[in-house]
Structures are given as C-alpha cells and as structure tokens.
Amino acid sequence: MSAPGKTPGLRSADVHAAGLTGRILWAEGTPSPEPGAETRNEPAYILIHGIGVSHRYMARLHAVLAASAPTYSLDLPGFGGTPKPGHQLSVEEYGAFIAEALTSCGIDSYVLVGHSMGAQFAIEAALHAPEQIRQLVLMGPVVDSRHKNVGRQSLALLLDGLLRESPSSNWIVTSDYFRCGPRWYLAELRAMMAYRTEERLAGIGVPVLVLRGSRDQVAGPEWSLRLSRTVAQGRLVEIPGVGHVAQHMRPKAVADAIRSFVTATTPHR
C-alpha cells in the first residue's frame, strides 16, 4: 500500500470515484479508510492540496493534526503521480470526486482543509455533500481579485517562492510540479482562474475559517477578509511571519488555529 513519492510514515491506498483514481493517505493510529467502517463520533480532518502539488507539502500539518484526531490526506486525480484523467476536470468535478471518494472510504463526517486551489476543491466538495461537512478551512485561498489573470497570479507565486518560502518547501512544490507535468498543470490552471470563489463560497452553510500567512501575497489580506465575510459564520486568522505555504513553515501554529476554530464552532450537545 505504498506509492512513489509518498511521505514516510503514511500508509496509502488508491481510491476510485466518478470514474477517476486518486489516493488517500493516513498515519498509524488513524483508522484505515474502508467501506462500512464504524461511524466515529469525532469528525476527521481531510487535507486537500492545491494545483500541481500533492499531499507532501501538507505532511507536517497532517502529522500534528493526526496526533489528536483522525486525519487523511488526498492526492487528487492527475496530481502526485496518480493517473491523469482523459479530459480537463472542472473544480466542480474535483469537488464531487472528493465527496464521493470519502463516502466510498466510509468517512462520513469531516472538516475539509484546502490549500490554495485546494480551497476551491474544498468549497465544491462541501457543496456536493452538505450533510457530511462540519467545518471548512480555506488556507491561502485563490484567486485573489488582484491576480485575475495568469501573469499576475504566476508572478505572485514566483515571488512567494523566492522571498518567503524555505528551501524544503520549494523543493517539495517544484518536484511535484515536475511530476504533474506542464500539460495537466496548465489545463487545471485555466479551471482555477475561471472559478468564482466568492460566489460559490456564499452557498456554504457551515462555519468557515480563512487562514493565511501574514506575508502571503497570493492570498492577500483584503481578499482573505472579504472571503471570511462572505458567509454567516466566517473567521479570518493570520499566521505571523510566513507566506503562502504556511502549513509547511508553521504547522503547529496552523494546526492550533484550526483546532481552536473547530472547537469554538462545534455545537455542544
């Protein structure tokens, strides 16, 4: 149950839904995902990567969250060495895949945590399965209204990598981009740029945390604040001193922010 490029310490299995194949990963101590698994009282954390990359740049956050709650990461179809679909997928199709894949794995109550384009995927998964989602976390969500063309978006990402990220995070991201390949990256870049994040987020009925690094100019402060105010139960948290890949640079601070938000917004029975 191992896969090329998989993070040491994580188990993995292929997952199939909607005619597509991805991968789900979990750590020792987290129940294995399987159909008919016993329903758990505690919702699971589901970590969703962004464009071109894989679970690997979420691995540090995964480890911290998994120490106290069931946590699963996904490698979505076409990314992280999973099979490339035969056609460009819309953000909506990725959202449906996530929701249906989790159901097929017996995971029926969860907190979705998406980073960058993964925030778009998470929104669509929440809209596809509103009964299963408990809270939604959008880390460094795209596309900031200041970067509404490919040139500006690409420049913001390039400057973030050069000026605000660590060599280890840059290595993970760059090597995953090579595995993804330019054709699939560019196909999904078009889907990312066309997605109406604010409009789709407005249909979410669960609590939403927008989380950004304080130095992140991919998801800037005005844009992030506006998103947090799009929903009735929205909140914005900034992680000091880091850029777009805050979950790799400051995993404990990010995990603490997520867990505090989930605790504060979970109804007491």
Rank of each mutant, 00 (worst) to 15 (best):
T71R: 04
Y72H: 03
S73Y: 01
D75Y: 09
L76R: 08
P77W: 07
F79W: 02
F79K: 01
G81Y: 03
G86L: 13
G86Y: 09
Q88R: 15
Q88V: 14
Q88S: 15
L89H: 10
S90H: 12
V91R: 10
Y94D: 07
Y94K: 09
G95N: 08
A96F: 00
I98L: 12
E100M: 04
A101F: 01
L102V: 10
T103K: 15
S104P: 06
S104Y: 03
G106K: 06
I107C: 11
Y110M: 05
Y110H: 03
Y110K: 00
V111C: 05
G114Y: 02
G114P: 03
G114S: 06
G114C: 08
G114E: 03
H115T: 04
M117C: 02
G118E: 11
F121W: 10
F121T: 12
F121H: 15
A125N: 01
A126Y: 01
L127H: 03
H128K: 15
Q132P: 02
Q135F: 04
Q135Y: 02
Q135A: 08
V137G: 01
L138F: 11
M139T: 07
M139G: 03
G140T: 11
G140N: 10
P141I: 09
V142I: 13
V142C: 15
V142D: 08
V143I: 02
S145F: 02
R146S: 06
H147W: 12
H147A: 10
S154V: 10
L155P: 00
L155S: 10
L158Y: 08
L158K: 08
L158N: 05
G161P: 07
G161Q: 14
R164N: 11
E165N: 15
E165L: 12
S169C: 13
S169T: 15
V173P: 01
Y177E: 11
F178Y: 13
F178V: 15
G181Q: 03
P182R: 11
W184P: 09
W184H: 13
Y185C: 06
L186P: 01
E188P: 04
L189N: 06
